[in-house]
Write a protein that binds this DNA or RNA. Structure first.
Length: 949
RNA sequence: GCGAGGGUAGCCAAGCAUGGCCAAAGGCGCAGGACUUAAGAUCCUGUCACGUAGGUGUCCGAGGGUUCAAAUCCCUUCCCUCGCACCA
């Protein structure tokens, strides 16, 4: 027969599947439905092998369930919501050489590229590309249900969803602070974010802006540690700097110009009315918040106008910077004199406020001493010291007695309470900033801005949270670790902003069309929409007909069909058909997605279902897959680093890649892509191919090993199905592609050649392969005379074929062969003749008696001595051994008891002689036989004695 | 920081829930052989150490403990990876 040629096979079958109805889901009330999706991809570039891992797992399950008799719906879609598509189009329009090279490397033609200079073109091109790649991977997707989130019909659905959320009181508006670009509006600050040109690693800092009364004005100082206000001793101001005087709702606040600008984005009515030089403030006093003490303003040069307010409140007990600056100042006579501070500085000493186990009550002093810090210019060391003290203080610190109402309280608790009290009393305010400079792709600066009327979905709602948690516990969630953590995640899940102002792709907010619904929020309930999308795609529905009444009827069963029909213009039959479709396919059985979704998509996916749909339609399962990585990091669409899929597919073959996904690692660990390993899977498929070929070409008669193969195959068949039912994809693939062929090899080795049996098992084996390597399976199936093995049912386990005794016979034989090999290895004998002595019958009798009365122990001795006619010494020795074995290996004893060893070995004498190229003689230890080394007595049931010469 | 997961032989990777046929599956790599050749082949054998008889010793990040018995259970400790919200 022919050689394994993946390329031609895969093309052939993909073409045939495409022309068939095999993957189209049709309602069949006689079949149980199984509805599975993968989390659809956002459109930001080409798919890579990491995505395909997730999609392929979905296909394994879809194909497996189909072959187990379920009616499977497996749709797909794409998610262009957001600004990735817009920015990609913009870069193409600007002829960005990097993006052009990326597109070309992935096979885009000049024609394609010319189409990509506008968002619509990008969406069109990539949705087509994705669909092609899915088809090329042999995914059994029903494309009749395809949708993407930029389409008008999808928007109709999302608007309905948000109306429902509004009706349930789950939408709310409140102020929100977020990174914004002046030109582009809100932006995400994230290392993988393509819309930033700088500062992706920045973190949002939540400062408390302390207000120090300073005459008619206030000096402001921003701190991350509001609880340390009890230890304030002075303020630090850079005498070289100029500061702005800002009018904030009638009060005058002093801060750096940069801070004033930032504050302007976070508060209304902020206006710079004056300026003041830093040195003008030096030596004066200001009244500190909370402690209401007058503290001096002292000169320092470590302050930074771009951090906080540019002015620092000094807590020398807990802040290494402050401690060292104070020391330096005190010993700098010249400077003290210059500003006339000699007396003022005398009383400024650290005030102990917090105690922690590791750092005592004066941590700053301790750490600068330990780290040998001598100057405020040693920035790196000081940053490290600050971090250390901050962590220790926050987690292990306790407020000391001096801290008023908060004395004795852990720092963790005191922190928020102190801040709250000061804000309520008007002595402080919130101030948000980014930890480093962030620049938008457009070149504009990104700052923290206040959005006063941000829309949120109220995921904090108690009833919703409780219902979702309760339901999550009943769901089928893989892996188990996620099943355990999901309820907790739901618990801490807070309100989440769900819309944004400005221009990007998405659905207009139905209550206020200045807003566009955000990307996480418009992709929670979409499995419900796939069902409807089919009717839109086929032209049976148009978007304008998708009214609130329509969706209410389809998803909630609300309203009379006649009313809905007349209000929407959709005919009754279509309405009823869609409703029936929805009720047939829903609920969703599995939502499969990458681990990045664990704290993002999956919780909101679940909560929106619970919030909006009836209980019977809440999702049943979630499966999370881990990443495929490339040396070091996760593969990223935005950063490239992954080979274009068509190239890889051509080199390895699709079935190879599919087997690689299935078998090289469990779905629940990260896996590093390894070409060498992938190559080995290609070889493995070659081996499988040849084995099947050999099975088909062998046509002999029956033999005793037939029973064994039948037993083993059925056992493995059952095992593989148990694994698949348990989502243990890797284990199932291991059985199918390694364990089964190993048994078939053994069968051939033992001289098996039963043509009918091999045909039967061969075809059944091919069916087992089908979910994993469908192209190869259909090709091999066809050679057995079955068209579309992938569309058949998996074979049923024949329980009667499974036989312990038949299998243990072969195990026994393997054991004996292993012992012989062992001896041949170590004992340097020629191995021309092998003598095997099977145990004496009396030993078997001892085992019988022990198994019959296991509690009697050595008490069995006297009866045995009478009965067996063997010397008591031999009996007691063996009995002791058996009693010992009984504790650890009862099963082994039971098996040994049942074997007719002599018969097995006699039957396979020729085989053994062939294997070892030696003469084999078999005796019972009870008979008188050639035994020059006195081995006979060593024979045990299940383990014969062996002598070789 | 918060939360989760993990460290098993040269590498990848099972096993751990339910302690005992666990020197620890399987794959890769490596070595030797067979075959016969240009194929990224295939097949067999070996691959912790020692051992001229199927055995013994040591071993599952490190250190303790429980137990007749620990890769598996408990405690301590070191190291690694990942997710953390307006990014999909």
């Amino acid at each position: 027969m022919n050689e394994y040629d993946p390329e031609s096979i895969e093309k052939k079958w993909q073409y045939r599947w495409e022309g068939s109805e095999l993957h189209r889901a049709k309602i069949d009330e006689n079949k149980e439905s199984f509805y599975i999706i993968f989390a659809y991809p956002g459109i930001s570039g080409y798919l890579h092998l990491g995505h395909m891992r997730c999609y392929t797992y979905t296909d394994f399950m879809a194909r497996y369930k189909r072959m187990r008799g379920y009616n499977v719906l497996f749709p797909a879609g794409a998610h262009p919501t957001g600004n990735q598509v817009i920015s990609l189009a913009k870069r193409v329009r600007e002829n960005d050489p990097r993006i052009i090279a990326y597109l070309k490397a992935n096979g885009a033609t000049d024609d394609d590229i010319s189409q990509l200079d506008n968002p619509e073109g990008v969406i069109e091109y990539f949705t087509q590309t994705y669909m092609n790649e899915w088809k090329n991977f042999g995914l059994s997707i029903d494309f009749d249900h395809f949708t993407d989130t930029s389409r008008e019909d999808y928007s109709r659905f999302i608007q309905w969803q948000f109306k429902k959320l509004k009706d349930k009181g789950l939408l709310t508006q409140k102020p929100y602070y977020a990174p914004v670009c002046k030109n582009c509006g809100p932006v995400a600050v994230d290392p993988s974010e393509t819309d930033l040109s700088k500062g992706g690693n920045a973190e949002v800092q939540e400062y408390t802006l302390l207000k120090f009364r300073f005459g008619q004005r206030y000096i402001t100082a921003a701190t991350l540690r509001p609880e340390t206000v009890y230890g304030q001793t002075n303020l630090w101001v850079d005498p070289q700097e100029d500061f702005a005087v800002v009018d904030v709702s009638g009060e005058e606040w002093i801060m750096s110009d940069a801070a004033a600008k930032k504050l302007g984005c976070q508060m209304e009515e902020v206006e710079v009315v004056d300026h003041i030089k830093g040195k003008e403030m030096i030596g004066d006093k200001a009244t500190a918040p909370m402690i209401h003490r007058d503290i001096p303003v002292l000169p320092a040069n470590f302050t930074d106008p771009y951090v906080g307010s540019g002015i620092v409140t000094s807590v020398p007990s807990d802040a290494p910077y402050d401690r060292i600056a104070l020391k330096e100042l005190k010993s700098d006579g010249e400077r003290l004199k210059k500003y006339g501070l000699e007396e003022l500085v005398e009383d400024v000493e650290p005030i102990e406020i917090i105690e922690s186990k590791d750092w005592g009550t004066n941590p700053a002093e301790k750490i600068i001493h330990e780290m040998g810090i001598e100057s405020q210019d040693e920035v790196e060391k000081l940053e490290e010291a600050t971090q250390k003290i901050y962590r220790a203080g926050f987690h292990a610190g306790t407020m000391l007695n001096i801290c008023g109402d908060y004395a004795g309280m852990p720092v963790q608790e005191a922190k928020d309470m102190v801040r709250k009290e000061m804000i309520e009393k008007g002595e402080a305010d919130m101030f948000y900033d980014l930890s480093e400079e962030v620049i938008c792709r457009c070149g504009g600066e990104v700052v923290m801005g206040k959005i006063p009327d941000q829309w949120f979905i109220r995921y904090s709602d108690e009833e919703l949270t409780e219902k979702s948690k309760e339901h999550a516990r009943t769901m089928n969630i893989r892996p188990d670790t996620y099943a355990n953590t999901l309820p907790d995640t739901l618990e801490w899940f807070q309100d989440r902003s769900c819309a944004r102002l400005g221009n990007w792709i998405g659905t207009r907010f139905p209550m206020d069309d200045r807003w566009i619904i955000e990307a996480i929020a418009d992709s929670t309930l979409y499995p419900a929409y796939y069902v409807v999308a089919k009717y839109f795609n086929s032209g049976k529905l148009n978007a304008s007909e998708m009214t609130e009444a329509f969706f209410d009827f389809v998803y909630l069963g609300k309203g009379e069909v006649d009313d809905v029909s007349s209000s929407t213009g959709i005919d009754r039959r279509t309405l009823q058909e869609i409703r029936r479709d929805f009720m047939y396919w829903y609920p969703l059985d599995i939502n499969l997605g990458g681990k990045e979704h664990m704290t993002v998509h999956f919780p909101v996916f679940l909560m929106n279902h619970v919030a909006i749909l009836d209980r019977e339609n809440w999702p049943r399962g979630i499966m999370v897959n881990w990443y495929l990585t490339m040396t070091g990091g996760k593969i990223s669409k935005s950063k490239g680093g992954a080979d274009p899929i068509p190239d890889v597919a051509e080199r390895f073959g699709i079935d190879t890649l599919r087997l690689y996904y299935a078998h090289s690692a469990s779905p629940f660990v990260d896996k590093e892509w390894n070409e060498n390993e992938a190559m080995n899977y290609k070889k493995r498929l070659g081996v499988v191919w040849r084995t099947v070929t050999k099975m088909k070409d062998t046509g002999g008669g029956g033999s005793p090993v037939d029973e064994y193969l039948r037993s083993r195959f059925n056992r493995l068949l059952a095992r593989s199905q148990n694994f698949m039912d348990d989502y243990s994809i890797r284990k199932a693939a291991n059985v199918v592609f390694y364990d089964v062929p190993a048994e078939i090899d053994w069968y051939f080795k033992r001289g098996g050649e039963n043509g009918a049996l091999l045909d039967e098992i061969g075809e059944n084996w091919v069916k087992l392969m089908a979910p994993f390597t469908p192209h190869m399976a259909d090709e091999l199936g066809e050679q057995f005379g079955t068209e579309y093995v992938t569309a058949r049912l998996l074979p049923r386990v024949d329980e009667y074929a499974i036989s312990e005794i038949v299998e243990s016979r072969e195990e026994y034989l393997k054991g004996v062969m292993n012992d012989v090999k062992n001896i041949l290895d170590i004992a340097k004998v020629k191995g021309e003749a092998i003598f095997i002595y099977v145990t004496s019958e009396w030993k078997r009798t001892v085992i019988e008696r022990v198994l019959a009365e296991p509690d009697k122990g050595m008490g069995l001795m006297s009866a045995l001595v009478d009965e067996l006619g063997v010397t008591p010494k031999k009996i007691s020795g063996f009995l002791r051994y058996v009693l010992d074995e009984l504790k650890t290996n009862r099963e082994g004893l039971e098996k040994a008891r049942e074997l007719n060893e002599l018969k097995i070995l006699e039957g396979d004498k020729k085989f053994l002689e062939g294997e070892f190229g030696a003469k084999v003689e078999i005796y019972s230890a009870s008979e008188d036989a050639y035994d020059p080394a006195g081995k006979k007595d060593k024979a045990m049931p299940g383990k014969p004695a062996i002598y070789i010469e």
